[in-house]
Nucleic acid binder design. Structure first.
Lengths: 185, 185
DNA sequence: TCCTGTTATGCACCTCGTTGCATAGCAACG
DNA sequence: CGTTGCTATGCAACGAGGTGCATAACAGGA
């Protein structure tokens, strides 16, 4: 379990409300750790009860008030402990791979549209990453305390970019393979 | 949910017992869809109740008897239906990415060992894939009804290989970035 | 004979994640 | 004034998945 830890990292980068966290989990953090707002609210409650985060009521004008969470000392310690203990490789779930192998027992050509849909999704996400990279990491920045944070965010983003490029190339490979059956290979 | 479907594909490729399925989920299928034996037995029960699979008691000598499962017509139909409906992109969980971003608020250098551990795991898995590819897909095979199945298995394996290579390259990128802080960047 | 290891199946429990729903403040539009 | 839409928070219920444990047949070695 690491949703707590993902939230801690996000709150350390910038304190915010449950709603704001939920929106970050739709972009940024969410590209390598998904969570819905219900999940986030529930975990925030627990983290608050455990003293991992502090809460501050923030009155707002023009919109409902919010609760702003920030990381407390015990939360920081918990994150540090997690960082220092080994994490086992994540369990993988690639349903498209299951579908590709399953297509052998159905109509392989029928999968082409689905693969193209996924390819489009990965192309879109890659473009989105590249825009973000150009926006946030291309202009050189003065060295400072934020420099480490910035470089680590950048290397994670580069991982996302590499992943999307790999997926697009693989999906092309899949499409070529599926097309091979089509044309009476 | 697609564990049912992963099991259907595996049983179509070759009928077998829950125990055998569990072992396949430790290799092969398991590289892109994980499941424990408890999960598999539980789901097999449900699939049997739903008429998706047939069961046959197989007496064995030298070891306990087993139940051999094979796909029934309704199971094949269920798989076909799933193949024809769009699947949304899988939710991702990359705890290492969370750790890398979190390292900015702790000691970045302390993460080096962890990243190296993961790099080693991916190197091992890549080697394993390449051995499997050389064993199963290098010798040309006469065209036949098994040809489609074989080619689709191969393209999925190529995806695994591409994934491991991408990860190794990215982990090297991470290590170089972490080393940059070390040497008083 | 006992112990260990492998094959083989399964239950009980608990947590995590998802789905669906509910509430409420406030803005903008028709 | 009602509707729609966004911000903001939350509950209830369910199902999937993981952990721990139990059972049993059989082989081989100490």
């Amino acid at each position: 379990m690491a949703l707590e830890h993902a939230i801690l990292v996000s709150l350390l980068e910038k304190p915010g409300s449950g709603y704001e966290l939920a929106r970050r989990f739709e972009r940024s953090i969410g590209y390598f750790w998904t969570a819905t707002h219900q999940q986030i609210y529930r975990v925030l409650k627990r983290m608050q009860a455990d003293g991992w985060v502090d809460v501050r009521d923030v009155p707002q004008s023009g919109r409902p008030d919010k609760k702003e969470y920030s990381v407390a000392r015990p939360g920081r310690d918990a994150l540090s402990a997690w960082l220092h203990e080994p994490t086992e490789p994540e369990s993988v779930r690639h349903d498209l791979a299951v579908k590709v192998r399953g297509a052998a027992f159905d109509d392989p050509a029928a999968l082409i549209g689905e693969v193209e849909r996924h390819r489009q999704a990965h192309t879109d996400r890659l473009a989105h990453y590249l825009v973000g990279e150009a926006r946030d990491f291309k202009e050189p920045q003065a060295d400072g305390p934020l420099d480490t944070e910035r470089e680590l965010q950048h290397v994670v983003l580069r991982g996302g970019i590499a992943y999307e490029r790999m997926m697009i190339a693989w999906l092309d490979d899949v499409l070529a393979t599926l097309a091979g059956f089509d044309t009476g290979h």
